[in-house]
Amino acid sequence: MIVFDKVTKIYSDNSKALEKVSFEVGHGEFLSIVGQSGAGKSTLLKLILVEDEPSDGQVLFDKVNVHELPRRELPHLRRRIGCIFQDFRLLPDKTAFENISFAMEAAGRSDAEIEADVPHALDLVGLKQKIWSFPREMSGGEKQRVAIARAIVNQPDLIIADEPTGNLDPLNTFEIVQILKKINDLGTTVILTTHNKGVIDSLKKRVITLENGRITRDDEHGKYVL
């Protein structure tokens, strides 16, 4: 589904974020990417979302080079990817319902679909009672669950989770990981980056280890090794 082919990313100050990174992610896979800060994890995710361009090599999404897509096609690509971030990135002036419905409006869904699907998505992450709350009225774990609901509401092919548990306590971390696992069990591909050893060890899924922009390990049932 996702193919990285000898991807190199060099920033303007000549620092290499990624160097000849190649790997493949199949449909329905759950891939964790680990590495220290600055190892290139976030850069890698940005390249999938076309937030950034590679200096060399190509990134394929279902056999299409995403960096050759015309600009107006990007929204279509991004609607097939659900994003979850460490800092949640909810729209602060919108309620939980509006944050999720916005992603559906972006995908051109009708009001009737929105009315039906948003409560369902919130139910899936166990937050139905917070549907009219603003982000400032929620805890970190709740915000992240709203963000997950937003990511899954359009039934994307791929979920990208960039350190989703970085700001959360152990209990919330465990719950978020369980939700991601559930999403993966329902057939969605998940790419997760994390520092958290406990998360990796409890998942028992494929792990790629990045060090200074290079892949140093790629284990089928990985453990957190640095």
């Binding site: 979302l49 937030e51 107006r72 929204p75 279509h76 690509l77 991004r78 609607r79 990817i81 994003c83 990135r89 909810l90 729209l91 602060p92 002036d93 916005f102 992603a103 409006e105 972006a106 995908a107 937003r150 359009n154």
Partner: peptide, 16 residues
């Protein structure tokens, strides 16, 4: 501007 970048990331077109 943060809001706008989030909108773009969830797949909103420029007009939306």
């Amino acid at each position: 501007r943060d809001e706008i970048s989030v909108m773009k990331l969830v797949g909103a077109g420029n007009n939306l």
